[in-house]
């Protein structure tokens, strides 16, 4: 990796100041994607601003049916949180199945969401649960947050503070893993909410998105048979050495059906 200036600010304000001062600064959370990318010299920030020292980005709080998870909360902490397990067991399960145990001890929810890897797990949950992304500049609706492959609605100098989820009536996340990387080839997060069924799909396309056709079908009839009838847009699906577009389209339906079974 190329060398860089390292900063470890103690507050969100200082972090943003450091970024603004840098010629090409980058925030780093757990570093689980950022550091391998830098090691392969695919990124070369002039300044790395480590968010690991900012206490206000940590912690899980519950208010009524809403659970708010600090951006620097690790996947391991989310998975182990009694509050998350109680209010959002599907999210705890999702977090507990990202990467491997050592990765979960470093990787964070904020880092994962801000990076928006097309095969990351959290984006599916954010979309399906209609989460709110609380940032240093305000709030971003989960539906609006993921704008393209590795792209989000965050401004350059905007930092995720926390993510708020509202407890759904039921939810499940089903992931079909890439046998090599263990990222999602397809991940489907299904939530039964007061506004009906919401589905977040990751891995299948360049950016996580809502499964509108599936939602429509399931809102009419919440059954695996209803999923069968949905025609998936194969031409929109990713294709790579691990899975063709057609197979991904098929897996979206299978994972959705498994989520339906789990939510019954």
């Amino acid at each position: 990796m190329y060398d860089f200036n390292y900063h470890k600010p103690g507050s969100v304000d200082d972090a943003i100041k450091a970024l603004r001062k840098a010629s090409d600064g980058k925030f780093v959370a757990g570093g689980m994607t950022m550091l391998p990318t830098m090691k392969h010299r695919l990124a070369s920030p002039s300044d790395v601003i480590d968010l690991g020292g900012i206490k206000e980005l940590l912690g899980i709080t519950v208010k009524g049916d809403t659970i708010t998870i600090g951006a620097m909360t690790t996947h391991a902490a989310v998975a182990a949180s009694k509050d998350v397990q109680r209010l959002l067991p599907a999210l705890a399960k999702l977090a507990g199945n990202i990467g491997d145990p050592a990765v979960r001890n470093r990787g964070t929810i904020g880092g994962s969401i801000a990076n928006n890897d097309p095969a990351a797990d959290y984006p599916a949950a954010v979309i399906a649960l209609g989460a709110t992304i609380n940032t240093s500049k305000g709030e971003i609706d989960g539906d609006e947050f993921f704008t393209g492959m590795f792209e989000t609605a965050l401004a350059e100098d905007e930092l995720i503070i926390s993510v708020s989820f509202t407890k759904p009536k039921a939810a499940a996340y089903m992931k079909f893993e890439n046998p090599a990387s263990r990222y999602a080839i397809v991940g489907v997060f299904l939530a039964k909410t007061n506004d009906g069924v919401r589905i977040g799909i990751t891995g299948a396309t360049p950016c996580a998105h809502r499964g509108m056709r599936l939602e429509e079908a399931l809102n009419k009839e919440f059954s695996t048979a209803a999923v069968d009838k949905v025609i998936m847009p194969v031409d929109k699906m990713n294709a790579d050495i691990h899975a063709s577009a057609e197979y991904r389209a098929h897996l979206v339906k299978v994972m959705t059906q498994r989520a339906v079974e789990a939510c019954k």
């Binding site: 570093g31 689980m32 391998p36 790395v48 990467g99 990765v103």
Partner: peptide, 21 residues
Amino acid sequence: SQCGACVVHVNGKSVKACSML
């Protein structure tokens, strides 16, 4: 950060020392 040959504990938790500065 796939192979785990570099796992150490930092503050009692396992991490991959190849993916941490």
